[in-house]
């Protein structure tokens, strides 16, 4: 299926390369967002406890 004749390797490597680069941004964005969400939650719980 993934056979594009003469340039199969080039095509596949460029698709994979681009998407692994993009994946870096996606993953870092996701991890960042998750961490911030958790921090915000903890902070709110702390605030409740203080009261």
């Amino acid at each position: 299926m993934l056979d594009f004749g003469k340039y199969t390797f080039e095509i596949l490597i460029s698709y994979v390369g681009t998407f692994s680069l993009v994946a870096i941004v996606i993953v870092s964005t996701y991890l960042d967002a998750r961490k911030v969400k958790r921090d915000l939650k903890n902070l709110n719980i702390d605030n409740l406890n203080d009261k």
Binding site: E10, G17, T18, V22, S28
Partner: peptide
């Protein structure tokens, strides 16, 4: 900025791979 950097890198990467053949 970070997204732009990644886009530049991937454009250069795919360009290089395309340029070779």
């Amino acid at each position: 900025a970070l997204i732009g950097l990644i886009m530049t890198l991937s454009a250069m990467l795919t360009g290089a791979i395309w340029g070779k053949p």
